[in-house]
Structure formats: structure tokens, C-alpha cells
């Protein structure tokens, strides 16, 4: 009868298996390392992180060096990915171009996750006005695609690395808060929170010591999912000319810069940055997918 939260089932609905204690050791981490998809994703990510950190040292040419006598060269042994309209080595620009995107996407996601987690815990556990208000804001933010909202704010504030990072981070905040909130609501149904109340624990301790560790898996998944979206958004912004400004190497900006000569058949100048974006997003998604699978099992 009672459809209220906190009124538990009174008939026995489940029977616990009286098996021998499970052996420790099959940690989620080990389960992850056993998955080929995770390994593949992690290798891709590590590759691009290495490029972001040491790109200029690895790259065979300077990404800025123009060779006006060797513009629009097809891929060759000297220039694996060819050269662009200004005769710059596309391969080097692709390697070095990983830096800006990873920097912005990672920082924005970290910002959104930290703020969103704190907000989500408060919304889910304390409820009340904050919960009502933020829930509505989330709805409003969700009504407009991320890219368009980011476009609006970045246009208003003027484009810079800091602005893009903050804008994406702040837009993520209510979205991540919503995910954390629903994970917290699931936890709120559990008796260990009643137990904590019976020990007279204060709200901060309940939120951060009791609940937070239990919603960490959900936050981790959300983080990786959002990282994918952040890359998506940053690429789109640069493509639309609102991201990193030339001549700094950047995948999205390079596509825009060379897109005009695509009909002329100079496909390598756009396709390689495009494939780089694709590989990075696939890498992130492979990792996300494996983490989700491991947590679900």
C-alpha cells in the first residue's frame, strides 16, 4: 500500500545466497585490464596525451614552418600526410594539434565534474529549493544543444582558451549534477543512510564520506562520457572559427582553414585532422564503454 519513500517491503522478496565469502582480488581495475576494448582505448588516449605533451619534440617538422614552394603536396615519404596551402607539414600539425583540444576538453570536464558532483550531492541529499531550481535550469540547458549554447556564450565573451574552458565547464555543471543527483537518490533509499542518521552524523559527512564513495562509479562514467562531448564541442567550436586561432595547430581550425580547397582534390589537408579527431573520440568511447561494462557486471 504505502507508496512513500522509506516504507520498505515487508514480505521477503529476496534471499541472499549463502555462498562462501568471495575472494578479494578481482578488483574493477583488473577486470578493466582484461578487456581488449579498454586496452585499445587506453593506448589511443595515451598516444594522444604523449603527443600533447611532447608533440613538438616528436614531430618531424615544425608545425609552423611554411614552405611556399611545396604547398598542397600529396602525402609522400618526406611528408607522410602531405603539406597544406602554406606548405606546412600536415603530419606535424596533427601531432601537435592534440595539445589544445586535450587541454581544453580535460580541464572543462574536470571543472564540470567537480562542481557538478558537489551540486548533485546537495540536490540529491538535501533536496529543497536548490534541487527544484537547479533541476529546472538543467531542463532549460538541455533544451538547447551543447554546441549552440557554447556558441552563444563564447560569442558573447570573446573566444579564448580560458573562455571556452569555463563555458563548457559551466554548461556541464548542471548536467553532471543531474546524473549525480539521481545516483544519490538511489542511495537515499538505502538503510545505511538511516544508520548514519542514528549515529547523529552531520549532513556534510553523510554526503562526502557515506554517499560519495558509492556514487563514484556513476561519476567516473559520467566524466568519461562528458569528456567525449567536450572534445565534440571544442572541435565544433574551432571548426566554426571560435576556438584556437591560426596559426596555432588545431584539428578543428585546420579543417576549416583547408576545407575550401577540398573540391580541388586536396583531401589530405582536411581528412587527417578529421581522422585524428575520430580516433581520439573513439579512444575515449572505448574506455567509457569498458568502464560501464565492468561496473555493470
Amino acid at each position: 500500500m504505502i507508496g512513500t519513500p522509506g516504507a520498505p517491503v515487508e514480505a521477503p522478496r529476496e534471499v541472499t545466497v549463502a555462498h562462501a565469502p568471495r575472494r578479494a582480488g578481482s578488483t574493477p581495475w583488473r577486470l578493466l585490464l582484461r578487456r581488449p576494448t579498454f586496452i585499445a582505448g587506453a593506448v589511443i588516449l595515451l598516444f594522444w596525451i604523449t603527443c600533447a605533451l611532447f608533440g613538438t619534440a616528436i614531430a618531424p617538422h615544425s608545425p609552423f614552418a611554411q614552405q611556399l614552394l611545396a604547398t598542397n603536396m600529396r602525402p609522400s615519404a618526406a611528408h607522410w600526410f602531405g603539406t597544406d596551402q602554406l606548405g606546412r607539414d600536415v603530419f606535424s600539425r596533427v601531432l601537435v594539434g592534440s595539445r589544445s583540444i586535450l587541454e581544453i576538453a580535460a580541464l572543462a570536464t574536470v571543472l564540470g565534474t567537480v562542481l557538478g558532483t558537489a551540486l548533485g550531492l546537495v540536490m540529491g541529499y538535501l533536496g529543497g529549493v536548490v534541487d527544484l531550481l537547479v533541476s529546472r535550469i538543467v531542463e532549460a540547458v538541455l533544451a538547447v544543444p551543447l554546441i549552440i549554447l557554447a556558441l552563444l556564450f563564447v560569442t558573447a565573451l570573446g573566444s579564448s582558451v580560458l573562455v571556452i574552458t569555463l563555458v563548457v565547464g559551466f554548461i556541464f555543471t548542471p548536467l553532471i549534477a543531474r546524473t549525480v543527483r539521481s545516483a544519490v537518490l538511489v542511495e537515499s533509499q538505502l538503510d545505511y543512510l538511516s544508520s548514519a542518521r542514528l549515529l547523529g552524523e552531520n549532513s556534510a559527512r553523510v554526503m562526502f564520506v557515506e554517499i560519495l564513495p558509492n556514487v563514484m562509479p556513476a561519476i567516473l562514467v559520467e566524466f568519461t562520457v562528458r569528456l567525449g562531448y567536450a572534445i565534440f564541442t571544442v572541435v565544433a567550436l574551432s571548426f566554426l572559427g571560435l576556438g584556437i586561432q591560426p596559426p596555432t595547430p588545431d584539428w578543428g581550425a585546420d579543417i576549416t582553414a583547408n576545407y575550401g580547397v577540398l573540391p580541388a582534390g586536396y583531401w589530405w589537408e582536411t581528412i587527417f585532422p578529421a581522422l585524428a579527431i575520430m580516433s581520439l573520440i573513439i579512444g575515449v568511447n572505448l574506455v567509457t564503454d569498458s568502464i560501464e561494462q565492468v561496473l555493470a557486471s
Partner: peptide
Amino acid sequence: LSATTVSEVVSGVIIIVIFGV
């Protein structure tokens, strides 16, 4: 999964190259 995750920037460019150019 792959199709979903690949940005329109990427798929758009690839499609133009293959079918258009």
C-alpha cells in the same frame, strides 16, 4: 557507437571527400 561518437565535422568531411569529390 562509432557512428554516434564521430563528430559531424569528421563524418561530413569524409562524406564530401568520398561521395562529392
